[in-house]
Design a protein around this nucleic acid. Sequence first.
DNA 1: TATGAATGAGTGTTCATTCAT
DNA 2: AATGAATGAACACTCATTCAT
Lengths: 233, 233, 233, 233
Amino acid sequence: MNDMPEQQKEDHRTRVGQERRQKTLDRLIEAAILVFAERGLNGTVIDHVVSRAGVSRGTFYNYFDTIEDALETARIALGREVVLLVKDSADLSQPPAERIAHGIHVFIEIARRNTLFLEFTARLGRRSFSFAAVLCETGPRFISDGIECGAFQDVPESLIFDMLEVGTIAILRRIMAGEAVDVEAFVAAMLRVLGLDFESSVAVAKQAVPQSLPDIPEDSLLARGNAAWLGSH
Amino acid sequence: MNDMPEQQKEDHRTRVGQERRQKTLDRLIEAAILVFAERGLNGTVIDHVVSRAGVSRGTFYNYFDTIEDALETARIALGREVVLLVKDSADLSQPPAERIAHGIHVFIEIARRNTLFLEFTARLGRRSFSFAAVLCETGPRFISDGIECGAFQDVPESLIFDMLEVGTIAILRRIMAGEAVDVEAFVAAMLRVLGLDFESSVAVAKQAVPQSLPDIPEDSLLARGNAAWLGSH
Amino acid sequence: MNDMPEQQKEDHRTRVGQERRQKTLDRLIEAAILVFAERGLNGTVIDHVVSRAGVSRGTFYNYFDTIEDALETARIALGREVVLLVKDSADLSQPPAERIAHGIHVFIEIARRNTLFLEFTARLGRRSFSFAAVLCETGPRFISDGIECGAFQDVPESLIFDMLEVGTIAILRRIMAGEAVDVEAFVAAMLRVLGLDFESSVAVAKQAVPQSLPDIPEDSLLARGNAAWLGSH
Amino acid sequence: MNDMPEQQKEDHRTRVGQERRQKTLDRLIEAAILVFAERGLNGTVIDHVVSRAGVSRGTFYNYFDTIEDALETARIALGREVVLLVKDSADLSQPPAERIAHGIHVFIEIARRNTLFLEFTARLGRRSFSFAAVLCETGPRFISDGIECGAFQDVPESLIFDMLEVGTIAILRRIMAGEAVDVEAFVAAMLRVLGLDFESSVAVAKQAVPQSLPDIPEDSLLARGNAAWLGSH
DNA sequence: TATGAATGAGTGTTCATTCAT
DNA sequence: AATGAATGAACACTCATTCAT
């Protein structure tokens, strides 16, 4: 009736089970991101997530303990992808000001072109994550190194992160609202916060406009989520 | 039994009714401010507001349509008082950079000393209001005048307002969390956003630290609300 | 349009409101007793209670904080009625042994004739209440007085209460199961626990069989609940 | 690769399979006893049982149909051990009253020293089992023989069993709650229920206090379960 | 036989809003 | 204008049970 040796059967079962589990988790995370992007943190959530993911209510709780847990997981999964994209587009040979200007530009342009990510970030604000988090992951000690080498003035790091985070979110919200936004002016302003003089800030901000944006892999959360988003709006 | 002429009775009734209505409204607004400061927009609210105001649930709906409506009203009432305070402390003879630096300082110091106001503003974020709103009311065209006269560089006004708003809120949140905050650094950063060079920004920020803060009238929402707040925490 | 003086209107409103509230509370308590009698503490409860009471789920929470709170309230309301019945039937001129024997008999016969009360008590066991609780309320220090005057031997009071409680419940469960139960033998056994010798215990138990049972008022929870119970079984 | 004759292989497989099945069942029963002792019949159970037993959720249903089924099995397995212990400690040459008094004492002292058994019995009440059940198994017709020979009075057997069961459980619950309990008074009361006069009941109860308790085999459920219990509390 | 992912009816609870008085 | 009892849809979360592998 069954010729497979025990060991092999075991392996097979384990593999199939893990694959199924991973697939369900992916669907849940994607659904969660979409729902958070649509509705923010309030309003019905779990029901929306599970019906979007096409699983039962109980399944949700096989993967997450609470709705906040789901947000956290979704946040991290989405953040990881964006961090990689921004990191990939960075030219490490450039001086700090150019690099940070470029990074802000890239981040905002990715969001501008990815409605899902734009809504997610703009709607959740600092509870999602923003460029500052990206900055920490891509170049830890980036700011303090810049200060040490004289590229930036000695400005409290927490202040820089605050301004970068909330400033970026404010920009994204305006983009989301359909307003025309002068991203270069924002980048220049951030550079001046870091200590650059006006002319340099404007020049660097202009020069750092990215020629091209990193490719978003087709099977990434960003791509799949955005497709699903556009499909349902 | 009653000798008053009809007309006078009518007037009397109307006046008494209006006074009572105003009194109830005042109590509701004060209660709403306290509850918003305590709990933000989420979490049970209406029950807390009405029990704090000492009125019935139904009465709430005689004055507000929704809870957001109550927030809006509370926001405006509180904002009006703060605008007046900041306006009063302004020295119109000073140049734009000094004036704005002084204004930011005063605003933050008022919040630091008025726990109710601090919590209200920090907890509600842009849904409350911030220095930018105050700025618009105290000195309309203040920014554009400053740009025209060369005190500031030509930076989009919406960007300035955004940075001012969200930056101030970020500062207040850190103060609320009990962190030590370098307000001067923030003021200097904002001045650089406006186009000042690093040295000037630091110098003006330092020099604009207010010697004294405006008096808060005892029967103001700020004073009464703060007293109630401190009494219940 | 409305000629009533303010004060009278106020009174009227208040009275109508209180009456409505009391009526709803009564219906909820009656429904709760029925549901507890039917299903014990487990199984769906709140839904059953509210649908039996014909009110909305939210109304339940206007009167009780939790389902345990409802049980507690129901328990107390039902207990109070039974205590009064047993107390009314007591002949205070009789010696302790006769009185307690009579009390146990009356309690058990009331339960035997009132299916609702029988099920409620038998199903909830010590979580409902039993003769011991009744004893405490009708004659505090009854046992210790009996011991002092030599009617009973010196037996720990907690032991007496335990045996009385759980013994009575065991009897009620057998009655509920439709078994023939020798109540006199139980009463005699309890008297022996208290220290009477065998012959006295049997004689007193026999002689204490009540000639008649107290009337149960028609608008009591016992009567109304029992009618509802019999109507739905 | 494999030289064993088919038949022998079959036997081997069967034996190994049966042993494995028995081992899994043992682990489930031990786990079930622990969980019931901890949590009673309510509160999440199956998950706790399977995780304690270290098997999967599905395996549980290969051995039991419902959670009550598992309780029944656990109850019987634990009961069998206790019956043997009490039976072993009995001195058959003693008269009925002395024997029953001794038996009650032994049962309660075993429970007092075996926390697992105490919690299991006290928490599950009549749904576990008690001395009355033990009595039936160790000496069927023990009560009726005692009545016939005049040691006990003619008291309904069901009444005796009821009082013995629920009385013992009440005692165990007080012990579990940490109260000081007068076990001798309980034993004496039970003897009076059986018809002994007060002085005899007190004297026999006192004289029947066991000198020593039976040894609990190390590989018994009682011993292993208690060790596991103490290890996790 | 053992696994564990999936299920979904059920459970207690909340709270903005309505409306008769 | 003020009251507060009533509402019920919405909500997060549980857990015994099934079933494909």
